[in-house]
């Protein structure tokens, strides 16, 4: 198979029945956090995509006063040979800003070359919950046969969701075109800390993955980070207005069955991005989504507050 010259392969490991675990930036940094942490298994880097045409924000790496490198988009593929049935390829990447579709397809080209059978991604699902709650995990697959497989793990199924932009979800959708199985796992992320790293979410996904993939992952390092972040999140929670606090639910099992649609989570994503970058483009995008989903009146106050802030 002829690969694009943008794909740089340093080594061609002999992998059997490999699964791809991929992580892009997203709410709570869950996807990227999971992929990064898995590298601790002792994974070795073997490939990367030369990404100058996919990024509008290059960084320079300066060592000892000399600019050594111009980094456009940090990304890497590493591999880990397991003692069990499936070897792992781990792909983590920063967020591409241009030609995302092409970038995702380059990653899948690498997956195809190494005959990946299935791809797992993860991300955060922004919800009005407290940070002290043990995050639930929601799941969606890209093939009907996988739905049964997912039932074995007591996950909350996602039934619908329109227009998801999270690349962790997009990768699984694109994999479907290549006939590669795919699963996207979403861990709950509280709305008031969505832009912050969420190690609790990362841990819950890793615990699940260790069961799904039959691998042992030492999660002790994460516990320290969780304690640290819990303190920060507690401060942010305390600063919320009282009536907002009241709307956040604790664990209510019956409510879980009602969350089968990701549209509101996607709206939270768009709010998060518009709050970070209140440009006309992002505000219009959010407004259009609110109207097309019929949810404008529900978010009206919040939307207009955002516009006023912009002024």
């Amino acid at each position: 198979m002829e690969l694009s010259p943008m794909i740089k392969i340093y080594k061609e490991p002999d992998l059997k029945n490999s699964y791809l675990i991929a992580g892009f930036p997203g709410p709570g940094g869950v996807g990227l956090g999971v992929a990064s942490y898995l590298n601790r298994l002792g994974a070795e880097k073997f490939c990367e995509i030369e990404a100058y045409k996919f990024s509008s924000m290059p960084r320079s790496v300066i060592k000892g006063g000399v600019m050594e490198e111009l980094e456009f988009l940090d990304n890497e593929f590493s591999y880990w040979k397991s003692k069990g049935e499936n070897d792992l390829i781990i792909f983590k990447s920063e967020q591409p800003t241009f030609k995302k579709h092409e970038f995702i397809n380059l990653a899948l080209d690498v997956a195809e070359k190494f005959r990946v059978k299935r791809v797992y991604t993860s991300s955060g699902l922004i919800r009005p919950v407290r940070h002290t709650k043990e995050p639930w995990i929601f799941a969606a697959a890209n093939k009907p046969e996988l739905k049964e497989y997912l039932e074995n793990f007591n996950l909350l199924p996602i039934k619908t969701g329109i227009g998801l932009t999270d690349l962790n979800a997009v990768l699984v959708g694109s994999a479907r075109e290549r006939n590669i199985e795919g699963v996207c796992l979403f861990s709950e992320v509280p709305v008031y800390v969505a832009p912050l790293p969420n190690p609790k979410g990362v841990k819950s996904i890793l615990k699940l993955l260790s069961k799904m993939l039959s691998i042992d992952i030492d999660l002790v390092e994460l516990d320290r980070f969780i304690k640290q972040m819990d303190q920060e999140m507690e401060k942010l929670y305390e600063n919320l207005p009282e009536d907002t606090k009241k709307t956040f639910v604790e664990s209510v099992e019956s409510e879980a069955k009602l969350i089968s649609d990701l549209t509101e989570a996607e709206i939270e994503n768009l709010f998060m991005e518009a709050e970070k970058d209140p440009s006309e483009f992002r505000i219009s995008k959010l407004g259009t989504k609110l109207y097309s989903s019929g949810l404008f009146p529900k978010y009206e106050d919040r939307f207009f507050k955002l516009i006023q802030k912009k002024r």
Partner: peptide
């Protein structure tokens, strides 16, 4: 659209669909 727009996916009946533009 591939060079000018971001891909989006929808979930229908529990399955993530191919990207739309």
């Amino acid at each position: 659209p591939y060079d000018f727009f971001d891909p989006e996916v929808s979930i229908r009946d529990g399955l993530i669909d191919v990207p739309e533009f």
